[in-house]
Every structure is written in C-alpha cells, then in structure tokens.
C-alpha cells in the first residue's frame, strides 16, 4: 500500500472518501445558503444575524468550514503532487511542493480559527 507522508491520511482511498464526503457537505451548505438568500430577497440585519445565532447554523457553518479545509487540502495536495514535480521544476521540486502544501495548510487552519471566532464571537 503506497503511503505518502504529506498526504492527508493513511491511504489514498481515505483521501478519496474524505474529498467526496466533504464535497457533499459543502454542496448541502452552499445550496442551503443560496436557497435562504433566494427566499429572503430584501434581507434585514435582524434576519441575517438571527440565522447565525441559531446553534444548529453555527455548527453547520463550522462543519462546512472543516469540510472546506479537508476538501481544499486534498484538492491542493493532488494538484501539487501532479504538477510540482521533479519533471516540471527539477531539483527544487520537493521543497517547493512542501512549501506550497505548508502554506495551504496554514491558510486552512487560519480560516478555520477565524470562522470559529466569527461564529462564536458575535
């Protein structure tokens, strides 16, 4: 079984599943928000703030944010291992790829923390 240190998990199959599951969560969240905005044309602050003060919405949003982190990580990892290769860049490929993945990882963690602060810091 091929395992790679920098991928998300134990095996490629686990990543494959994680990406599908996170995609479904994100699709559900996106469609919900889109529906909400469509059905509330002239949205007032009270409605908008009210929506996000329900705990189920906060949890759903956080779940979506985690799913986004997972989805983006697996996606970006796949892209980086496809394109940032020795064949493409040559000698420095591994360090460039590692830096790229580190930046992605930090960005995703930062967004997650920021999201928690927004949702629970109201």
């Amino acid at each position: 079984m091929v395992t790679n240190v920098t991928n998300f998990s134990r095996s490629g199959l686990y990543d494959w599943m994680a990406q599908r599951v996170s995609a479904v969560v994100l699709a559900a969240y996106f469609l919900f928000l889109l529906g909400y905005l469509l059905f509330h044309p002239n949205l007032s602050y009270a409605d908008w703030h009210g929506l996000f003060s329900h705990n189920w919405m906060r949890i759903f949003s956080l779940l979506a944010l985690v799913a986004l982190g997972v989805h983006a990580w697996v996606g970006m990892w796949t892209i980086s291992t496809d394109y940032l290769t020795a064949m493409a860049i040559g000698k420095w490929a591994t360090s460039v790829r590692f830096l790229f993945q580190a930046v992605c990882g930090i960005a995703m963690f930062a967004y997650f923390v920021w999201g928690v602060q927004i949702l629970w810091g109201i």
Binding site: H49, Y111, I118, I122
Partner: peptide, 9 residues
C-alpha cells in the same frame, strides 16, 4: 469571511 464578519458585526 471578512464580509461575513462585517455583516454580522
């Protein structure tokens, strides 16, 4: 996220 934060503030 910035827009969300601002709109909820």
């Amino acid at each position: 996220l910035f827009v969300l934060d601002k709109s909820l503030s």
